[in-house]
Every structure is written in structure tokens, then in C-alpha cells.
Design a protein around this nucleic acid. Structure first.
Lengths: 150, 150
DNA sequence: AAAATTTGAATTGTACACAATTTAATTTTG
DNA sequence: CAAAATTAAATTGTGTACAATTCAAATTTT
């Protein structure tokens, strides 16, 4: 009574999804020790990147940028607030919205973070051009799969 | 008193890491409704892929394949067991090891899962060749960043 | 304007991830 | 061989993700 072997298209190593999932976690793992001196987790670092770019966004706007909902962002932002990096306050124009503002410490942290991307690029042993190409292809994947598409 | 703008290399859209992180979550999001009828989460599906390929692995071996530790796998496997898809038992040769075996139901589920990769490939609107190329480049990233490297 | 709907955050509950510790079972070593 | 070191899972604790619900504040309808 022989059991059929797994068809090729179900092999783990054949999966595009797994290469993506594994690579994403591997990259996060490399960031961890780099971010530890700044007292940030990787998702917190992403939120700070957005705020350094444009301060005073609402939770909703931050969520659109990072593709995260309030269930993820609210506790994350509370931790950033507890760490003294941001302030959270209701907008006067619309009390439903919560505006996130960098504190002086939050803004100052940008200088320390400034070294990180180069650090990462070096660890990847990849040309800048190839990295940009791969990045843009991944953006295309996200765009293609985003719910608005199709 | 003008504040310096964020340098280009700190812009969110410039980050390779974010494109990876966003794409990975987008892909998982597409799997969710496909896996729901099978009663699997995405990481559970990955564990099943490994077991369909080679049954009777230990938690450690499964962890090596998926790059996950027992802190993640133990509860995940308990849920698969609760769903009646796998059995967990200590090895007699070495009582420290826990062997994971597919149940009949677990093996049978492979037939339903068989349609999923093609479903996914179609959603990506990408040639098979391009998907494989991207997949292999991502594997290279993971390999490059794995702790054994350097 | 009052009622119904919509919207933005927060909350609740489930399921990962992963560091750090614990426990039990083997191996290695003195 | 017995103590020490190592190993495999499990456990504990923190921090995401995300669906679903709740709540309060706008907005739209009637």
C-alpha cells in the first residue's frame, strides 16, 4: 500500500510565500540588535520612520502608510509614548482622531537611526542597484495583492 | 529655526526591509481566506507542507526547516493536534524528542491544499519564471542573513 | 433637529514570533 | 560511574498582527 508522494508544487522549497516569509523574519532578526540600543522594536522603528518623514499624523494615516490597523498601532504607539518618544492627543477639529507627535527625544533619535540603513545594506552583500530592483519588485507584489486591486 | 528634513535613506519608501515586511503580510492576507476552509492559519499550513513532505519529524527538525523555535511551534502543533491533524509523542529512542505524525485526516487534507499554490500564482499576475526568480533571490537574502553566515 | 449611518480609536480575543528560563533526558568528562 | 555539561521541549513574558466588537464623535438622512 504505497502512499503518493507530495506533488512538487506543494514542496516547501517551491513556495514563493515561504521565501518571502522566511526572508522577512530574517531581516527583522538582523534589525533587532541594531535597534536595541535605540530601545525600538522593528515595527516601532517603521512607525518612527514615518513620523520622522511627516510628524503629526493620525493613527489612521500612520496605519495607511504602514498597512496596519488600530488594533496593532494603538498598543505600539502607547509603548512609544511610554518610552517618551511620541505624544498622543485627540484632534480638536475632530475628536475621533488621535494625532501622534514626536517629542524632542523622538526627533533626536533620528540621528542614531541614521546609520542603520547602511548597516543593513552592507549585511546583505548586495549591490545598491539590485537591492532597489528587488525592493521595487516586492512593492509590485504588495500592490498587486492589495485589496483594492481586482 | 528650520528643522532638517529626513535624509533620503531614512524614507519609508526607500527601505528594502519595509517592502519585504509589507509584501509578506500581504501574501499572508491572501492565503487567509484560501486556508480558512481547511481550518489552517498560514504558519500552520507551512508546518503541514513540511509534514506532507516528510512525516514523523521532531519539533526540532520541523523548526530547522521553518526557522521557528519551540516557543512558536509547541503551541502551534498543539492546535494542529487539537484539530485532529497530527499526533505528538515522545520518541522511545530519546525521550527528549517529540515526534510529529500526521493523522489520516492530516494526510487527507493535502488533497484540498493541492489547489492553493496555483490559486496564489494566479493572484500574483506574474509569470512562473519571474516568480521562481524572485523566490530564489529571496532565498539568497535569507541565506545571506542567516546567523551561520559571516 | 432627531434618528440612522458612518467613521476613527480602542478593546477583546486568538495566534504567532522570539528571548529567556525551566525541566527532563542524554552525553561528556574527570 | 557520578557530576557536569549539553540538548530538546515546554513555559513564561513581551510585542506584534488581525478579525470582530465597542464606543464616542461626526455626518448624512429623513
Amino acid at each position: 500500500m504505497k502512499r503518493k508522494p507530495t506533488p512538487d508544487h506543494l514542496l516547501l522549497d517551491a513556495q514563493f510565500c515561504f521565501s518571502l516569509y522566511a526572508a522577512s523574519r530574517a531581516v527583522t532578526g538582523v534589525y533587532r540588535p541594531l535597534l536595541e540600543p535605540l530601545g525600538l522594536t522593528y515595527p516601532q522603528y517603521l512607525a518612527m520612520l514615518v513620523l520622522w518623514e511627516k510628524d503629526g499624523l493620525t493613527v489612521r494615516e500612520l496605519g495607511q502608510r504602514l498597512q496596519l490597523d488600530s488594533g496593532t498601532l494603538t498598543p505600539l504607539l502607547k509603548r512609544l509614548q511610554a518610552a517618551g518618544l511620541v505624544d498622543r492627543r485627540r484632534r480638536v477639529e475632530d475628536e475621533r482622531e488621535v494625532e501622534i507627535r514626536l517629542t524632542d527625544a523622538g526627533l533626536a533619535l533620528r540621528e542614531q537611526a541614521s546609520e542603520i540603513p547602511a548597516c543593513m545594506a552592507q549585511r546583505l552583500h548586495m549591490s545598491l542597484g539590485h537591492m532597489q530592483k528587488l525592493r521595487d519588485e516586492l512593492k509590485q507584489v504588495t500592490l498587486q495583492l492589495s485589496p483594492t486591486e481586482d
